[in-house]
């Protein structure tokens, strides 16, 4: 059974239809990517899944349970969360407090402490700066913080919206390494990216979104080899 299943989703902004009848699924243990250009509807899809915007039609299932209509904070409790586009860390809180907000739904003190250790081991920069106000971090550090904060909720399904956006090539590589690491520790990943090359390379499967519709689907390898994809997204 799919961990996440999106069925015939339509989303409107006023009279404009941003998402047109899309269906896709993410199975447990997979890395799945939605690729597409700016304005294709990737972020809208992600926000609909988290209940931040309400679809006009269609269903979203998590672990077989219908989740559209459930408030976002309850969806997080079910075991999924999102690293939002643009990181959206809490710039007035310290690095430590941001990570603590990630663990907001948890009450297992010991487990939280252990996860702090894991995160600091993964991101030594965050430990060095744990008492610093998060707004003063560099863009790359903020992305690490956003990812660390999301993993603090111990999600079964982690969604990342354009995690490589605006980062230097070196940091982009690091972000993809971390995504692979999250996957290795047992997290199912749904990734939204414009960087088709890197994301297809780590994906089990991918869907291509264009103007609110899914136009192509396949395994990461198939799509990397596809002529259409090469032309449209891989610059060649």
């Amino acid at each position: 059974m799919a961990l996440l299943e999106v069925k015939n989703l339509d989303v409107h902004y006023g009279v404009i239809q941003a998402i047109k009848n899309i269906s896709f699924e993410v199975n447990e243990g997979e890395i799945v990517t939605l690729i597409g250009a700016n304005g294709a509807g990737k972020t809208t899809t992600m926000q609909s899944i988290m209940g931040l915007i309400h679809p006009s039609h269609g269903e979203i299932y998590y672990n077989g349970q219908k989740i559209n209509g459930i408030p976002s904070h309850k969806i997080v409790k079910l075991g999924m969360t999102q690293v939002p586009e643009g990181r959206r860390i809490f710039s007035e809180l310290t690095v430590y407090e941001n990570l603590l907000m990630g663990a907001y739904t948890r009450n297992d003190k010991d487990g939280i402490e252990k996860d702090f250790k894991d995160i600091y081991a993964l991101f030594p920069r965050l430990e060095e700066r744990k008492n610093q106000i998060a707004g003063t971090l560099s863009g790359g550090e903020q992305q690490m913080l956003a990812m660390g904060r999301a993993i603090m909720s111990k999600p079964k399904l982690l969604m990342l919206d354009e995690p490589s956006m605006g980062l230097s090539p070196l940091l982009v590589d690091q972000v993809f390494e971390i995504i692979k690491h999250f996957h290795e520790i047992g997290t199912t990943i749904l990734l939204v990216e414009q960087n088709a090359n890197k994301s297809l390379a780590i994906s089990d499967r991918a869907y291509v979104l264009e103007n609110g519709k899914i136009v192509l689907t396949g395994t990461g390898k198939e799509l990397l080899a596809s002529e259409e994809i090469k032309k449209a997204y891989l610059g060649g």
């Binding site: 408030p71 904070h73 997080v76 409790k77 809490f90 007035e92």
Partner: peptide, 14 residues
């Protein structure tokens, strides 16, 4: 503080 800064991101924290 989190809600006052970014309501959407706060919801993503649960």
């Amino acid at each position: 503080i989190a809600v006052s800064e970014d309501r959407g991101a706060a919801q993503l924290m649960g």
